[in-house]
Amino acid sequence: MGTRRDIGGRGDLDELLRRFYGEAFADPLIGPFFTEIAGTDLEVHQPRIGDFWERALFRTAEYKRNAMVPHSKLHAARPLTAADFGRWVQLWHAAVDGRYAGPNAERAKAQGERIAVSMLKRMTGADGSAVSVGPGFVPLAAVRLRAAQGLHQFGCGGR
């Protein structure tokens, strides 16, 4: 996997999250959720989301917030769709793959997929199966199928 190393701890997560949010804020599809609707201040958001991901991947941080609350508020202001969540997954994968490779990187991608599908279902009841957006889009139905077939290998061999 070249010179990419695995996500090793909080410093790597912070770097990954800066990279990801830089792309997400600039994205024409999902960027407005962060910049216009939520008015996200990345300096405030970064430590909170870093705690979330550190807890999700390493169980070493305290995260006592409910991640659904801010997303539900966004959904109330402008409905989040399968296309929005699919784009989030695409950008998350690109940010992870652009810098990291290994079991933790694979776990981060799988966790992101699970979160996207779970939030979509909780907010809309949809699973994203009927969505087609364009080249490079990761349909959530494909994410669910991959998970159901057990194709996430978490660094335990090839694809």
Rank of each mutant, 00 (worst) to 15 (best):
G11A: 13
G11P: 07
E15D: 14
L16F: 00
L16W: 00
L17H: 02
F20R: 11
F20S: 15
Y21A: 08
A26M: 09
A26R: 03
P28W: 05
L29K: 02
I30Y: 08
I30A: 01
I30C: 07
G31Y: 04
P32K: 05
F33H: 04
F34A: 03
E36Q: 07
I37T: 06
A38D: 12
G39D: 11
T40R: 14
T40N: 04
D41W: 12
E43I: 08
V44S: 02
V44C: 05
V44H: 10
H45F: 00
Q46W: 00
P47W: 06
P47S: 05
P47V: 15
R48G: 14
R48H: 14
I49L: 10
D51V: 02
W53R: 05
W53I: 03
E54I: 03
R55M: 02
R55W: 01
A56G: 00
L57I: 09
F58G: 06
F58E: 02
R59I: 04
T60Q: 06
T60D: 12
A61G: 01
E62H: 04
Y63G: 08
K64T: 02
K64G: 13
K64P: 01
K64D: 13
R65W: 02
N66Y: 04
N66A: 03
A67T: 08
A67H: 04
V69P: 09
V69R: 15
S72W: 06
S72H: 01
S72V: 11
L74Q: 09
H75F: 07
H75V: 13
A76T: 13
A76S: 08
A77I: 00
A77V: 02
R78K: 10
R78I: 02
L80G: 00
A82E: 14
A82F: 14
A83G: 10
F85A: 03
F85L: 13
R87K: 08
W88D: 06
V89F: 02
W92K: 13
H93P: 06
H93M: 15
H93I: 12
A94R: 01
V96F: 03
V96R: 05
V96D: 10
D97M: 09
D97C: 08
G98M: 00
R99F: 12
R99I: 11
Y100M: 12
A101F: 08
A101C: 10
P103D: 08
A105H: 00
A105L: 02
A105F: 04
E106L: 05
R107E: 11
R107M: 13
A108G: 08
K109T: 12
A110H: 01
Q111A: 12
Q111P: 03
R114Y: 12
A116P: 05
A116C: 10
V117A: 13
S118A: 15
M119T: 06
M119E: 14
K121L: 08
K121W: 06
R122D: 15
R122Y: 04
T124K: 12
A126R: 09
A126P: 03
A126M: 05
D127N: 13
G128W: 15
S129H: 15
A130T: 13
S132G: 09
V133G: 00
P135M: 11
G136P: 11
F137C: 05
F137K: 03
V138Q: 08
V138D: 07
P139D: 09
P139Y: 14
P139H: 07
A141T: 01
L145T: 09
L145V: 14
A147S: 10
A148G: 15
Q149Y: 12
Q149L: 15
